[in-house]
Simulated scan of single mutants.
Amino acid sequence: MENLPLARATVDPDAVARTRPGLVTDLAADPGTRVVLVRQGRVATKDGALDLRAPADVTGATWDPERLAYLGRDESGRYLALTLPETLGEERDLDGVPVQEDAALVSLVEGLEFSHLRDVGDVLPDRDAGLATTAVSLAAWHARHPRCPRCGEVTEVIDAGWVRRCTADRSLHYPRTDPAVIMAVTDAEDRILLGHAAHWPDRRFSTLAGYVEPGESVETAVRREVAEEVGIAVGQVEFVASQPWPFPASLMLGFRARVADGAAAEVRVDGVEISAARFFTRAALGEAVQEREVLLPTRSSIALALIEDWFGGSLR
């Protein structure tokens, strides 16, 4: 399984350059730099690609290190992510005009389209998929970690957006990634097990998934999650592929898993995380999708890739 939607990065991350003093300032002043705009977890897009801007085009932007991250370089130039304030444009006067100093930036943003990676991750070109995934990941990390986990004091951004340093104890903190397993479970009849999470819309079904806990291998996590969520014992576990899932900070590790030999394939949902689950034959799933009795995950997800890998073709 190759070319998963959010695992197609082509840009050189150029990590050795991140510690160079003045790098971000230089990038913001370089007309060849291209800026990825991030707003509320979404990226600016146009015609199925990122809507990249030169720094001079981002009128009204304040090049605050807290909102910037160096994404890397390729033969076309260097890339910078700019995360816009969450409340940009919300405060207005009686005439409806933005009262913030960044009114010019508000005007620019109102003319842009911002898209969620879940919706466009599969259609973005390879370069753009990698840039967008990294930009969204870093924006989420910065938003969630403004203070030092050791002492609670404010942290500052260094190394071109890739490190936060405590202003009190000087400890360094790096972007985190939470490993999660996601698995296509099949039984002796080669039926696939799909579940419905309690918080999902009606008819939405997908593969089971869960986070890897401290002290366990990913294979153990697969078996534990399946047992906890649907009461089924898993035997063979085979790694397939992985992709980042920055919502906010996961790395999805995809597996094929088989119901253990001799174990009953009787589904007993936990009723908390999973409210319904069942096994499907290929014919039954194909018909259910066609009749819209079952709604599958978006094409950006590894879940759909695992399901279609088992099915042997496209289901959407």
Score class of each variant (00 low, 15 high):
residue 306 L to K: 06
residue 37 L to T: 06
residue 89 G to Q: 01
residue 159 D to C: 02
residue 217 S to K: 06
residue 154 V to R: 14
residue 172 L to D: 10
residue 260 A to C: 05
residue 18 R to P: 03
residue 84 L to T: 00
residue 163 V to S: 03
residue 256 R to M: 04
residue 148 C to P: 06
residue 209 A to N: 14
residue 114 F to P: 03
residue 53 R to P: 00
residue 287 E to K: 15
residue 19 T to L: 08
residue 253 L to K: 03
residue 256 R to T: 12
residue 30 D to P: 08
residue 176 R to L: 12
residue 129 A to E: 04
residue 141 W to V: 03
residue 247 F to P: 02
residue 236 Q to W: 07
residue 290 Q to C: 01
residue 116 H to W: 10
residue 121 G to N: 11
residue 230 V to W: 11
residue 94 L to S: 10
residue 118 R to M: 11
residue 221 A to Y: 06
residue 248 P to N: 08
residue 225 E to N: 13
residue 181 V to Y: 06
residue 257 A to W: 09
residue 162 W to I: 04
residue 43 V to Y: 10
residue 308 E to H: 09
residue 191 R to L: 07
residue 85 P to K: 02
residue 293 E to C: 00
residue 268 R to Q: 13
residue 297 P to T: 02
residue 64 D to V: 01
residue 153 E to S: 14
residue 23 L to C: 05
residue 23 L to N: 07
residue 60 G to M: 00
residue 248 P to Y: 13
residue 21 P to E: 03
residue 82 L to M: 11
residue 248 P to M: 03
residue 160 A to Y: 08
residue 116 H to K: 13
residue 181 V to N: 09
residue 58 V to N: 01
residue 114 F to C: 05
residue 43 V to S: 10
residue 267 V to A: 06
residue 82 L to F: 08
residue 246 P to K: 04
residue 44 A to T: 04
residue 55 P to S: 01
residue 126 D to R: 13
residue 90 E to C: 00
residue 245 W to F: 14
residue 150 R to T: 11
residue 74 D to Y: 03
residue 95 D to V: 00
residue 14 D to T: 09
residue 169 D to Y: 10
residue 187 D to L: 06
residue 104 A to V: 01
residue 297 P to N: 09
residue 192 I to R: 08
residue 224 R to N: 11
residue 247 F to M: 13
residue 78 R to H: 12
residue 151 C to I: 01
residue 206 S to A: 15
residue 252 M to S: 12
residue 38 V to R: 09
residue 304 L to T: 03
residue 284 A to E: 15
residue 51 D to W: 12
residue 172 L to C: 07
residue 44 A to F: 11
residue 152 G to Y: 03
residue 246 P to F: 13
residue 38 V to G: 04
residue 253 L to D: 02
residue 178 D to E: 12
residue 303 A to C: 09
residue 213 E to V: 08
residue 88 L to W: 07
residue 2 E to I: 06
residue 65 P to K: 01
residue 4 L to D: 03
residue 163 V to Q: 10
residue 126 D to H: 09
residue 160 A to C: 05
residue 150 R to S: 13
residue 15 A to I: 07
residue 20 R to K: 10
residue 74 D to V: 00
residue 286 G to N: 09
residue 134 T to C: 07
residue 314 S to K: 10
residue 298 T to F: 03
residue 202 D to P: 04
residue 128 D to V: 03
residue 266 E to P: 02
residue 76 S to H: 13
residue 291 E to T: 13
residue 139 A to C: 05
residue 165 R to N: 01
residue 36 V to E: 11
residue 180 A to Y: 00
residue 30 D to W: 04
residue 207 T to N: 14
residue 212 V to P: 01
residue 203 R to E: 09
residue 179 P to I: 03
residue 310 W to C: 09
residue 197 A to W: 08
residue 177 T to P: 00
residue 308 E to T: 11
residue 251 L to E: 15
residue 43 V to A: 08
residue 219 E to L: 02
residue 313 G to E: 10
residue 42 R to K: 15
residue 246 P to A: 15
residue 251 L to M: 14
residue 153 E to R: 13
residue 2 E to D: 14
